[in-house]
């Protein structure tokens, strides 16, 4: 079963013949890495957002006070982050 992409060694006909049921959508050409890289800045923003829900004003704090902690408190517990 040629589930994983070979390094160009596998006969493409053979793959299509035997494995049609495994890729009903059709496999797409990957997006070049250099095209993805600039968007990773948004990944950093996402991580910051998760930090605010999960740990701000708990173990560490960026904003002074306890308001952020108190506001997202229940979700912090229920999403599995350590709290009190």
């Amino acid at each position: 079963m040629a589930l994983f992409q070979p390094g160009g060694t596998l006969d493409p006909q053979e793959f299509q013949m035997s494995d049609t049921t495994f890729h009903p959508d059709g496999v797409v050409t990957p997006i070049p890495v250099r095209e993805i890289l600039p968007w990773l800045i948004f990944g950093a923003l996402m991580l910051l957002a998760i930090y605010f829900v999960g740990a701000e004003e708990g173990a560490t704090a960026i904003v002074p006070g306890m308001y952020v902690h108190e506001w997202v408190h229940d979700s912090r517990h229920l999403l599995g982050f350590p709290c009190h």
Binding site: Q5, F22, G26, V28, T29, L40, M46
Partner: peptide
């Protein structure tokens, strides 16, 4: 936020990790 991260990982993984749609 996890939806956004998911999309970025997908952008890299699609067509690269497995020969699946």
């Amino acid at each position: 936020a996890f939806g956004g991260l998911f999309a970025l990982v997908f952008a890299f993984a699609n067509g690269r990790l497995v020969a699946l749609g």
